Amino acid sequence: MQASALDSNYLTFEERRIAQANVEQHWDRLTTPQRFAFYTLAKLGYQLLFVRSSPHSRTAVAKQDDKLVTIDDEGDIDFNPDVVLRERRPPRH
C-alpha cells in the first residue's frame, strides 16, 4: 500500500475535502456517454466539478456561473438537478 493511501486514513474530514481530486482524475471516472455529454457542455462554458459514484451509478456534476447540471451514467443531462453543494469552509484547527 502506498504511503499516500495510508496517510489518507488519518486525515480529518476537512483535510480530505481540501485534498479533492483534480479535474483529470474526475475525467477518468466518467463513463463514455458522460464524456460525450460533458464535451458538449464544455463548449458552452461548463466546468466539471466532480463525479459522485455509488454502487449502481455515477453522476457527474458540472457548473457554469451559478448554474449546476448533472450527467447520469448514460449521458443524459439534467439542467435542473436537485443538487445542493456544500459550502467551502476553512479547516478546523
Rank of each mutant, 00 (worst) to 15 (best):
E87M: 03
H93E: 13
A62Y: 12
L6P: 02
L85W: 06
Q47P: 05
T59V: 15
L68R: 03
L68H: 10
A42P: 07
K67V: 04
T40Y: 03
P91N: 10
R17V: 09
G75K: 06
H26Q: 09
H26V: 03
N22Q: 12
E14I: 05
F13K: 13
L30F: 01
R89K: 14
D76M: 10
P90W: 10
A5R: 13
L49V: 09
E87T: 04
A21I: 09
K67W: 01
S54H: 05
D72N: 15
T70E: 02
R35W: 00
S8W: 00
A21T: 08
Q20M: 14
P55E: 12
K63E: 15
A60Y: 01
S54C: 03
H93S: 11
E15N: 10
N22T: 12
M1E: 10
Q34H: 00
P90I: 08
F79V: 06
H26Y: 05
L48P: 13
H93I: 06
A21P: 09
D82R: 14
V61I: 15
R52P: 00
A37H: 10
P33K: 01
P55I: 03
H26L: 03
Q20V: 12
E74H: 12
V51N: 00
V23I: 13
F13W: 11
G75C: 07
R88W: 04
P91A: 11
R86W: 00
E15D: 13
A21S: 15
L44C: 02
V84G: 05
Q2Y: 00
F79I: 04
A42F: 08
